[in-house]
């Protein structure tokens, strides 16, 4: 029986804080609050949550950058506190929004340098670098200085760095954050390709993009305020978003019209979209949509589109946390 790739039990991580006007008592911030996880080898596991939920802290504990305050964590059966070196031999990490590297070096040189930290012989290391650069579409830029790379190219280079040592467990911390749509799609495609070519490998991916987690992951855990509040296959998670139906409606600006109190309307999230308003409606039953349409019609609001939608992880998150992920992000970023 193989050991799990990642295993945590009641993992707690606190950060000591200085006294400040926001935190007059200097109370520690609890970033992880009893996280228990079990990720078998060969799985692509997603950790979904808003900014500040504890995703990066969990990765840092697992890659041996941070010690846990309490609880236990093992990677490939190895203890993250006592078996640091053995873990580092077998893992790799790629973080999004990274600007690491030496601008003076070319892409190929930068990657070669990291290959040496893993003890790879130069010749096969360079061959592997070229091969991976071709896979991510960066081969033509191999002799370009890293200081001249765009954000997307830099992230592709970082991904290659992470794959260079052929890790058994790859930790991807928000690998597409800050990238444009095309670059993000490319990165996701390479991740999928890598896991397809290396079926025994494990990936732990953190993201706050719902669709990314849905697209890539075999299983997803939702983390909020340092606690895992749900975890399952994306399809199974979506089944939890029961008790109603979902509609997507586009109309004119609402200007004070409230839909939340209408009979059968359990939740109405609005989003401005090119001068129009997009409404995601969670209704008790299909018939409740008639009431919504009537209110809009009575208020002389044109309806541009209306469709019934399948629940997504977004709906699961809303049900579990009581707010949309974007709202949770904004609250965290707010004063």
């Amino acid at each position: 029986m193989t050991v799990p790739a990642i295993e945590t039990k009641e993992l707690v991580r606190e950060y000591r804080m200085k006294r400040s006007p926001q935190n007059p008592s200097g109370a520690p911030v609890v970033a992880l609050d009893g996280v228990t996880l079990d990720v078998p080898q060969g799985e692509m596991f997603g950790l979904l949550g808003p900014n500040g939920a504890g995703k990066t802290t969990l990765i840092k504990v697992l890659v041996t950058l941070l010690l846990p305050t309490a609880g236990a964590a093992r990677v490939l059966g190895l203890d993250v506190v006592g078996q640091v070196q053995q873990i580092r031999e077998r893992i790799s990490m790629v973080s999004g929004g990274e600007h690491s590297g030496y601008g003076i070096l070319t892409v190929r040189e930068q990657l070669w340098m990291f290959s040496q930290f893993y003890g790879l012989p130069s010749k096969p290391a360079l061959a592997r670098i070229d091969e991976l650069l071709k896979v991510v579409g960066l081969y033509e830029e191999r002799n370009r200085r890293t200081s001249a790379l765009s954000t997307g190219m830099r992230q592709k280079m970082n991904l290659v760095r992470g794959l260079l040592s052929d890790p058994e467990v790859l930790f991807l911390d928000e690998p597409t954050v800050g990238l444009d749509v095309t670059a993000a799609r490319d990165i996701r495609a390479y991740i999928k390709e890598w896991i397809r070519m290396k079926p025994g490998r494990t990936i732990l991916l953190t993201t706050h993009y719902m669709h990314e987690a849905e697209e890539l992951c075999d299983r997803v855990a939702i983390i909020h305020k340092g606690r895992i509040i749900a975890g399952d296959a994306p399809a199974a998670l979506k089944l939890r978003a029961t008790g109603g139906t979902y509609f997507l409606l586009t109309t004119e600006t609402l200007d004070g019209i409230s839909l939340a109190g209408l009979p059968g309307v359990q939740r109405a999230d609005t989003r401005a979209l090119d001068g129009r308003m997009e409404l995601r409606l969670h209704l008790a039953e299909d018939g409740a949509i008639a009431g919504v349409v009537k209110v809009l019609a009575d208020s002389n609001r044109r309806i541009f589109s209306l469709q019934k939608i399948e629940p997504t992880l977004e709906e699961v998150f809303v049900q579990l946390v009581g707010q949309r992920l974007e709202e949770a992000d904004e609250r965290k970023a707010g004063p």
Partner: peptide
């Protein structure tokens, strides 16, 4: 951002 990477490399 290099320091974090240096801390997890096996060398």
């Amino acid at each position: 951002g290099n320091l974090e990477l240096y801390m997890v490399v096996p060398c």
